[in-house]
Each structure stands twice: as structure tokens, then as C-alpha cells.
Simulated assay, not measured.
Amino acid sequence: MKKRKLGTSDLFVSEIGLGCMSLGTDLPKAQTVVEAALEEGINYFDTADLYEFGENEKIVGNALRNVREQVVIATKAGNRWTNSKDSWTWDPSKAYIKEAVKQSLKRLNTDYIDLYQLHGGTIEDNIEESIEAFEELKTEGFIKYYGISSIRPNVIREYAQKSNIVSVMMQLSMLDRRPEEEALPLLHDNNISVVTRGTVAKGMLSDRMLEKASSKGYLDYSYEELAEVLPLLKEKLASSRSLAEVAIQYNLAHPAVASVVAGASTAEQIKENARAANSDSLTPEEIDLIKSITKANRYDQHR
């Protein structure tokens, strides 16, 4: 599988990354999925301390322990579970980030984290303090690089201007084109990579299409609009390939995108995602056609 450079870092990540939240808590089953990913050339594994109260990090660390030097492990911090573990609070403070990383390192059973990400962020945060925490962790050798996971244009802009982030994880798909107008060009101009999630839009951009759609619609699409748009995308672009392939190739077509993070709970899903990444790129005409069928949605909040 092809790899792309992550921002200004020396990390090269596979065009498909494994979103580890979908691995579950069954270690043998998770090991099978991770091994299938490694066989397909996937080297980028994304987790977070929030997933399964930290158990996900333990599973990922265990599954990758024998190939640690050959993979890129990304995790996230900033959300604190309450004592009752029925909700979490947001804490981007320096003290918390520097404590959270130690716990993640322990659970992952590793000496360093390749990419440490702030798991959210608001414009009301003390952004300078959060940046200071990440910079110190780099100097101390606990992390190699850092990034953020955010869809807020105002937060992304602040980090692009003030920090040394190498990546931003954000939702992007043919049905969610909100980052295209401002976030993707800004990040590309600043040599900051995008790692995408939500690429198949909750399964709607797969051959199951409307089966996965809610009667309430999706973002600014009503159900009636989805019933029109999804079959049209299938008819015009996915007659000889799956709609999921088209969805993944649409994201990979943007020069700012380094990797498409996709969840998988079986080895077969891993193989399907790898096939999609290795399939033919979309032509400029196909991209234009997609844009003519779908909405150029934009962020109304967090400006």
C-alpha cells in the first residue's frame, strides 16, 4: 500500500489507517484484524484514551508489540472520564495532558507515541498552554509529533498559526464537504496533513446506501435528498466499483489528505478497505461530477 508523508514529520503513513475503536475488547479477534491490516501494508493505527476506558490502548499496544518499530501509533487525550464512568469532561490543561500521556504509554506498552493528538478543542481553551504541553512532551521524548482532532475552523486556524502540529483529524466525505472551502486549503498551504474519518458517512456511501440512512437525514441533507443523491452517485460513479471505493478515493484525491482512517471489525473489512485504497484514482472529471451531484456544505459555527 502506498504511503504519504505526514505534514512536516518524518512519518510516512499508509493511505488507509485502522481506526482502532472498532476492534472491541476481544483480544484474539482484535489481533486477527490487526494482523490482516499489517498484511495489507497498513502501518497507521489510531486509538484514544477515551475508547473503552483505556482498554482499547491496551489491546492496540499488545497487538502491535512485535512490530512496534514498523508502525505509527496515534492516540488522543483531553477527555476525562468521570469517576462514575458514565460521562466525560473536557480538560486540555497542560497538567492533564502531561499526566494522560504517561497513562497512555503504560497502556500501549511503549516508550514513545508517534502522533499524540488533542481529542477536540474549543476557542475558549488556553491554546498556548496546550501547545506548551505538547512541545515539552516532544522535548522529553515521550512523543514524536502532535496534532489535533477537530472540525472547528476557528480552532484549526489557531493551531495552524501558533503550533507545530503535523496533522488534523477531521470528518470528510462526499456528503460532508465542509472542510473543502477553508480548512483543507489552509492546512495544505501550511504543510499540515489531514487524516480523515467518517469517509463512508455512517455507511451511506457503501452499497447499503439508504439502509444506513436516518429518516432525519444527514447534516444538511433531508432523507428525500439522500434518496435522490445516493443512487445517482452509485449510477454515475460506481457501476464497476463499490461506492465505498469511490468514497475513499474521493478523500485521497485531495493533496492535503495523508490517510483515510477506517474502522474494521473483521479481516474481510480490512481487505475491502485496502482494495479501495489500491484501486484507480478518480479522474478530474469524476471529481467534478461528484461535486455537481453533492452539496458544497460549509461550517456555520465555530468561525
Rank of each mutant, 00 (worst) to 15 (best):
A48S: 15
I143P: 00
S150E: 01
L6K: 01
G141T: 01
N109L: 04
T139Y: 12
S292H: 11
D280H: 12
K271L: 01
I270K: 03
Y44T: 03
N43K: 02
L38F: 09
S14Y: 01
Q117P: 11
D280N: 14
N191K: 15
Q117C: 12
F134E: 01
K236Y: 02
Q171R: 14
N66T: 15
A256E: 08
N62W: 07
W90N: 08
I270S: 04
V261A: 14
V194M: 11
V246C: 03
Q161C: 01
L64G: 06
S173K: 09
I143C: 03
S214E: 12
H302C: 09
P153V: 10
W88C: 08
G17V: 02
M204W: 02
Y51N: 06
A30F: 01
E69Q: 11
I73L: 06
V260Y: 08
G61E: 08
M204Y: 02
H302M: 10
A74W: 03
C20Y: 07
E140V: 03
L64V: 07
I143K: 03
R157P: 05
M170S: 14
Y145E: 07
K106W: 12
T294S: 14
T32F: 00
T82E: 10
D220A: 04
P284G: 11
D125I: 07
A95G: 10
E211F: 07
D288V: 02
N62S: 15
L115H: 06
K29Y: 06
V60Q: 05
N126L: 05
L289F: 08
K102P: 00
M1H: 09
S239I: 01
T196H: 10
K271T: 05
K144E: 05
L23K: 05
E55W: 01
A100S: 14
I131V: 08
L205K: 07
S149M: 10
N251T: 14
G203T: 08
E124H: 12
E99G: 06
A276C: 12
N191Y: 14
H302Y: 15
Y96N: 13
A227K: 15
E128G: 08
W90Y: 14
I143A: 02
K291V: 00
E224R: 14
L187W: 09
V168P: 10
N126Q: 09
I143N: 02
A213F: 06
D26G: 02
K271Q: 13
L232D: 02
R208W: 07
S163G: 00
E181R: 15
I59Q: 03
Y299M: 08
E39Y: 10
I248D: 04
A227D: 11
Q301E: 14
L252A: 13
I123M: 10
K234P: 00
A63V: 00
I287M: 12
Y51E: 04
Y159D: 02
K94N: 05
L11I: 06
Q31G: 00
S150D: 01
N43Q: 02
L50A: 11
S93H: 08
I59Y: 04
T139E: 13
L289I: 11
V257N: 06
Y51H: 09
N83M: 02
